[in-house]
Design a protein around this nucleic acid. Sequence first.
DNA 1: GTATATGCAAAGAATTTGCACTATG
DNA 2: CATAGTGCAAATTCTTTGCATATAC
Lengths: 159, 159
Amino acid sequence: MISNRDDLRRQLAAAGIKPTFQRTIILEAVQGRNGHPAVRDLHQRLVRDAPTLSKTTLYSTLELFARKGLIAALYIDPAEVRFDGLPGPHHHFACTACGRILDIDIACATGQCGRIHGHRIDEVHGYFKGLCRDCLAAGRVPRAPSVPRHKSPRRKSHA
Amino acid sequence: MISNRDDLRRQLAAAGIKPTFQRTIILEAVQGRNGHPAVRDLHQRLVRDAPTLSKTTLYSTLELFARKGLIAALYIDPAEVRFDGLPGPHHHFACTACGRILDIDIACATGQCGRIHGHRIDEVHGYFKGLCRDCLAAGRVPRAPSVPRHKSPRRKSHA
DNA sequence: GTATATGCAAAGAATTTGCACTATG
DNA sequence: CATAGTGCAAATTCTTTGCATATAC
């Protein structure tokens, strides 16, 4: 909580982004170590501070942040995009019992090299699935059997 | 093409799945090395053999196959689930220019261990993003800037 | 004042669900 | 006939798009 709003506004300005009130609190929410929120989560959390905040603004702002490298979008949960305040390259762990997505402070060495089989590597994405420490201890079991599903998109999307 | 329909039916039976005509041709299509098809691709391709084949059947069948371990679902493309005939654990490469998803015959050593930070690892997922060899040679550039998007889902989905 | 940001409402699309029909033994 | 598989149609909901309004420099 030391990093106040002014700090965030500075971050935005440094990225060439006009630091509006909405953008400031959105960045704050994604960077705050509150897991890896989806748009739905962010909206629920932020309407308290900004009652008129729309999902449209959330979508466009988060896309902007991702494009500028301030945050990263995670496609681990097939049901919705999750966002990551990313300090640097790292992996993730998705618990099939509690549904949380945790940061894993390792980066696969394999991906470090800039080229594999002749392909130029720009991004490395890695995540694990299983039961987190807490759920193991509590004896919880996976909810949905590890059978993936997706959601419904649009036309663009190619990333 | 050597592995005929009887072979596929045997695979299905071995997995405890009743080998209907639809299931047979669906498995054939996913295993056939035609990239990593989405439901849309499979439907377009298979209606030629089975004009009444519905997307509903595709969805339920693919989920069944994934649950039984015959195939794997890939969530790399935020716009739609892709399916993989999977021979074993491997990574993937998504080209941001041509949109193809290629198999990468490596498996991150980090993920092999059954436990990380106390979490039990059941699945390891890794993929790279960049420009594939062909697109590099052809001088093609990324389509959408590496800004992710998703699609629209349902309520379940937790895997 | 002009460009940019925000937001409401409506559209778009992958995926799911309900139910009726068909096939199999 | 009873069980399981298939498919049409309707529903669901994330994400996008089109303006209209509000804000910022």
